[in-house]
Design a protein around this nucleic acid. Structure first.
Lengths: 208, 208
DNA sequence: ATGTGTGAAGAGCTTCACAGCC
DNA sequence: GGCTGTGAAGCTCTTCACACAT
């Protein structure tokens, strides 16, 4: 049993996206070279990545689009589709609610929470916005395991702790701060300023 | 002259954020162990990262907060502060415009573009929203080198090409698709579904 | 004493080249 | 012939341990 590189996991979703596209176009079989063109990833990398999980391809032919699509969904545990809770219906929260196409049937935001009286009781794209004081109850009742945290930095650590106690297993956070969580809970931070800073650094390099 | 790891560059901004905090609190000197606590990064990593760029610390004492702050700003080329253009004033765009605190005086969104007549001519948080047809003109006139692309997936590649021709050097994109750009232009994609998929994968792992 | 700076060892990821199968 | 699957080599990054400075 081999260890699977983190980077391999990261690349699976782009592969999945490409496969969904190809499937819609009616393409039945795809060689790694074609996937490579679409995803801008070296074909050898793609083959190696997929080989960690089994032998999905046919030599001399390529990969069966439908089968590989299903296989990746299963590897990523996107089957059946997961329900995600959104906490914080500000600008970022609304952007995520409006951006449902992104899920490729693997996961959807099913419920949202906020503390703003004007938002509570409304629905955005069919997703109800509930009172954040009821969060623990709903998370437990619906057995939700994933949350997106899109609240201001000041309250993010507090709410993260509440999610932890409510039984959440993973958090995708947009707060530009570290969330001290036990290692049993997976936390990923999307930090926009870090990305910008990196870009500035690399874009101002001159050639040697 | 050594090669600097990509990961080192990524970590500089979190260091900078911690230093700005420490400076506000009035802390003058900080050892790597303290920075490590704040950033949740191993102290040896911090020391190694900083050592790529010079000797900023004092043995037996630690790092001078103000000096290190300035040094990192210079390394990242955040001094003087850079002006960034935002293209697309939808939900994500507005979130970014409202989220200016994130820049730590290293960069600010100075101008925004959209194609919606209702948005053109307005201003969000003091930042004017201009007609996207005028984009090339303003980018050239104000010598803007960085752009945030927050437009729908369908039009993202086309607008990216326009930005390229207008002389932009780096793009931070929120479109869940690959942008084929010459290597002289640095592109970073923030792909929310990939992040979600990763989290789902890792959160459903059981211990061995 | 205390905390930095750094070579060397170790771990992890990518690239390559080609054997193996259709 | 064409394309996958994979060991081995090569490269990059992290970890460790300790010399060195104050």
């Amino acid at each position: 049993m081999k260890k699977i590189p983190t980077e391999t996991i990261k690349r699976l979703f782009p592969y999945l996206r490409a496969l969904v596209c190809l499937d819609k176009e009616g393409t039945a079989v795809v060689p790694s070279s074609r996937l490579a063109d679409i995803c801008h990833i070296n074909p050898a990398v793609i083959r190696k990545d997929l080989s960690y999980f089994g032998e999905f391809g046919t030599r001399g032919v390529g990969y069966d689009v439908k089968k590989l699509k299903v296989a990746i969904r299963e590897i990523l545990n996107l089957k059946p589709a997961k329900t995600v809770a959104l906490v914080g219906v500000g600008n970022i929260g609304r952007a995520l609610l409006s951006y449902q196409g992104f899920a490729l049937e693997g996961f959807t935001i099913g419920i949202a929470f906020d503390n703003d009286k004007n938002k509570i009781g409304t629905a955005v794209r069919g997703i109800p916005v509930l009172d954040i004081s009821q969060m623990e109850k709903y998370v437990a009742a619906e057995n939700i395991q994933l949350a997106i945290l899109a609240v201001p930095e000041q309250v993010a650590p507090k709410i993260a702790r509440r999610l932890e106690k409510a039984g959440i297993r993973a958090i995708l956070s947009f707060a530009p701060c570290q969330l001290a969580m036990p290692s049993s809970i997976k936390v990923t931070c999307v930090d926009l300023s870090t990305e910008m800073a990196r870009l500035i650094y690399y874009s101002s390099e001159e050639e040697p």
